[in-house]
Nucleic acid binder design. Structure first.
Length: 489
RNA sequence: GGCCCGUUAGUCUAGUGGUUAGGACUCCGGCCUCUCACGCCGGUAGCACGGGUUCGAAUCCCGUACGGGCUACCA
């Protein structure tokens, strides 16, 4: 993996190496730290791993990187797993926990120590800090001095860390599936710490051992790890491991700012559909021609690194909302109704999936962008507490209407069959009889029955409301009309 | 500071030397219409900048600017 600079640049040997590994079974991993909820950025990393695994007939491994005991919390592992499940990414293997593998890491560190590929460093944190400050002041590279790299005069009983011996010359080139060939010279590489003074291993060491011993063929992760890759490769080499193929995904801007508002379950609670989340994040950095809407099956079929972009994207709430609205329309009524239930229950509407609910879903789903929005927009179907909007009443309850509505109420009461068609026939008849447009009657009806001027088609709405409710609300509206007419006179 | 990476409309993107630079979200018109929404039609808006290479560059090379990442006994 290490070679002279010009050779590395000219040969691009990883090309050859990569193709050899490609014939091996694909094993990828998603390796989050359990320090919080699964955020949209992490979900996308997981998704790209998952899609690649499924597309290649490979294995999707979950590994929990909980070596940071300070910040890691066991409950977050469950939360992350739950989010993956909800999104439909089934884990084939794991979760593995780094915290349970310390013996392996220490054994490997010892192996490196004995082979002379790593060494003990007795510098104190204070000394290192002083070195860094001096380097900063003099404009030099901020890098460990390597004073202990070849020293034999180890002091007794003093705390020490173990550092890897990074190459002193040459260059390292990787052929990244996303970034293409990237080369870093050995002069940029540091002898980084692999074992802390308390004996615990560090991330850049652990990740190599895990990926290697778990036979990970392709390491797909955020681009923030790209530079670390060059630190890690000497570890692979020193331990005699094969180097996997890397794919460093562009980062997503604007995620870290709105704190807490972008975890997967946050969007789930806002009434976003699992399909929409998958669909939207898949398009952040990946594309398939002009297609915008994808099922998971399509994503699995179409996904490939040849169409993963290199530039970072931005999370766009408007577009995400649009994707969700598309999925609301696409799901069949029964499926959507089932998913709607918890939101209705939360709003205090205890209903079940029956013909009526399916009818409501059918007319509401293309009028709402989220399940939460749909709940709010459909409240009058489930609650009798409809308060008439003052402005709407003022605008639509015109004097004279009370006469017509008296008639309409009478005719509706007498209807033998309560269907949208029969209800419409009543309204049509009164439009003709009183020589008014439907709008003049529809809006006052809508206001009476829903409290406002917005609803699905009037006759569908009245049908779904049922005769009893419709008449009760119409009569209440009529009373107000009469009141206003009397006040006017 | 050093190293690595990026830059097509406000946003997500197509594009791999020859296109009137395509699609989508947003926004603005219009149609449909009992309201809203959907749908349909149309519009505004883009290759960061400067040099090359080439008959020809959004596409290739160099530089500049801007943005991001890494540079820990964090992950």
């Amino acid at each position: 993996m290490l070679q002279a600079p010009d050779e590395a640049r000219a040969l691009g040997p990883q090309h050859k190496y990569a193709s050899e590994i490609t014939r091996m079974p694909v094993r990828v991993r998603f390796a989050p730290s359990p320090t919080g909820y699964l955020h949209m950025g992490g979900a996308r990393t997981a998704l790209f791993n998952y899609l690649f695994a499924r597309n290649q007939g490979g294995t999707f491994v979950l590994r929990i990187e909980d070596t940071d005991l300070e910040r890691s919390k066991p409950e977050y592992t469950e939360v992350i797993h739950e989010a993956l499940d909800w999104l439909g990414m089934t884990v084939d293997e794991g979760p593995y926990f780094q915290s349970q593998r310390t013996a392996i890491y220490q054994a490997k560190a010892l192996e490196l120590l004995e082979a002379g590929n790593a060494y003990k460093c007795f510098c104190t944190p204070e000394e290192l800090e002083a070195d860094r400050e001096r380097a900063l002041k003099e404009g030099l590279k901020q890098m460990y001095s390597r004073v202990w790299r070849d020293r034999r005069d180890h002091p007794e009983g003093l705390p020490f860390v173990v550092r890897i011996k990074a190459p002193l010359e040459g260059a390292i080139t990787i052929d990244d599936m996303v970034q293409g060939p990237v080369t870093v010279g050995a002069e940029e590489l540091d002898d980084f710490v692999i074992l802390r003074s308390d004996g615990s291993p560090t991330y850049n060491f652990v990740v190599v051992i895990d990926d290697a011993t778990m036979n990970i063929s392709h390491v797909i992760r955020g681009k923030d790890h790209l530079n670390n890759t060059f630190r890690q490769i000497p570890v692979y080499t020193a331990l005699g491991f094969d180097v996997p193929i890397f794919g460093h995904l562009p980062l997503i801007d604007g995620l870290s700012k709105r704190k807490g508002s972008m975890s997967v379950q946050h969007y789930r609670d806002l009434g976003y559909l699992q399909e929409a989340v998958i669909n939207y994040i898949s398009r952040l950095g990946w594309s398939h021609g002009d297609q915008e809407i994808f099922t998971m099956d399509e994503l699995i079929e179409f996904f490939g690194f040849d169409h993963v972009g290199r530039s970072s994207g931005r999370f766009d709430d408007d577009k995400f909302l649009w994707v969700n609205a598309e999925w609301m329309k696409r799901l069949d009524d029964r499926d959507l109704a089932t998913r709607w239930l918890p939101f209705l229950a939360k709003a205090g509407f205890e209903v079940s999936v029956d013909e009526r609910l399916l009818g409501i879903v059918a007319v509401m789903k293309e009028r709402a962008k989220t399940l939460v929005e749909m709940t709010e927009a459909a409240h009058y179907f489930f609650s009798d507490e409809v308060t008439l909007d003052e402005g709407a009443v003022k605008k639509w309850f015109k004097p004279g209407l009370e006469v017509i509505f008296e008639d309409i109420v009478a005719d509706l009461s007498a209807l033998q069959s309560w269907t949208p068609e029969h209800v419409q026939a009543v309204y049509d008849a009164h439009c003709a009889k009183h020589e008014v447009g439907l709008g003049k009657l529809a809006q006052p009806t809508r206001v009476s029955v829903t409290g406002n001027t917005v609803s699905p088609g009037l006759f569908e709405t009245l049908y779904l409301l049922g005769r009893e409710t419709t008449l009760a609300r119409l009569k209440a509206g009529l009373a107000i009309m009469k009141e206003r007419a009397a006040g006017d006179a």
